[in-house]
Amino acid sequence: MKHLLSTASLAHADASAILDTAEEMSAVSTREVKKLPTLRGRTVVTLFHEDSTRTRVSFEAAAKRLSADVMNFSAKGSSVSKGESLKDTVQTLEALGADAVVMRHAAAGAAHQLAAADWTDCAVVNAGDGTHEHPTQALLDALTLRRGRAAAAGVDPRGTDLAGMRVLIVGDILHSRVARSNVWLLHTLGAEVHLAAPPTLLPVGVEHWPAAVHYDVDVALAAEPDAVMMLRVQAERMGGAFFPSAGEYTRRWGLTDERLAVVERLPGPARDGSGAMILHPGPMNRGVEISSAAADSPLNRVLDQVSHGVSVRMAVLHLLLSGDRGPDRAAEAASPAADPSTDRSRP
């Protein structure tokens, strides 16, 4: 694995390796000294053509916990609008000594183009490209789902996948890179994926996806999902373009207090009626796609998702830059006994 560009192209083994490595990284995050020497002397550049403080900070924290140097490069808007080509920007970054580029861009495929062109030898991590993919978000969601089920069963999550889990994704599927990355990854890991959305917010062609499609959230909830993932509704979709009003959206597709009561009674990952997990990629629109009660519910894993984001991104950077594919080396590195002088991942 040289780059992480999409989950559509991510094999089960690679996804599992990232999740297992992320478990080791989580252990580091709970230590008093939250730092590993594995990427000392390596440089990670976050190249963000689109504002996203949350994702950027998460990647920055991940890189720093691995002792990498981090450079932040903001290039708001497309390269064309600012008069510098993507090619020139990336070659500039490489000349500055970047080993990995974490890229957020409004254009679908921008990270793929970077990786495919012979413009750079850097490892490329897609941190969200248009409405195409956001693979690390799906990986952190998968980590959250896997941990949630393992905790309910009282087992070690490592080595497990999502086989037998049912996950419902609700909202603007059409414009969501999070939804796309999750559909492919959760399916690869064995989960049964359900989607619920207004027909206007589902892409033509969704019938080819490995997912069951519902227009009615209540019907979808009756299928007893183990987890419900609510997507953020962008303000520009409202006002009649895709659905008549925010109020109608909330009534028909929102996680309202009434639907929260249904979710609380679902069998859930523990199979004991303790309720389904609630996920949200954040930031939440309280009162629109999710009620305040649902946002604050103990079933809601949104803060777990944030901390899992750092662990997953540490795992990805570690695996891409150290050339180490398995969790064992990470475990070794994460163990307090590991001697930094034997760290073969250093250049």
Binding site: A108, G130, T131, H175, P203, V204, G205, W209
Partner: peptide
């Protein structure tokens, strides 16, 4: 619109040209 609207555009997340 960026590409033909169908199975591939749905996957790539590109605005479709139906």
């Amino acid at each position: 619109a960026q590409m033909h609207e169908g199975a591939v555009s749905a996957e790539l997340g590109m605005p479709g040209w139906p």
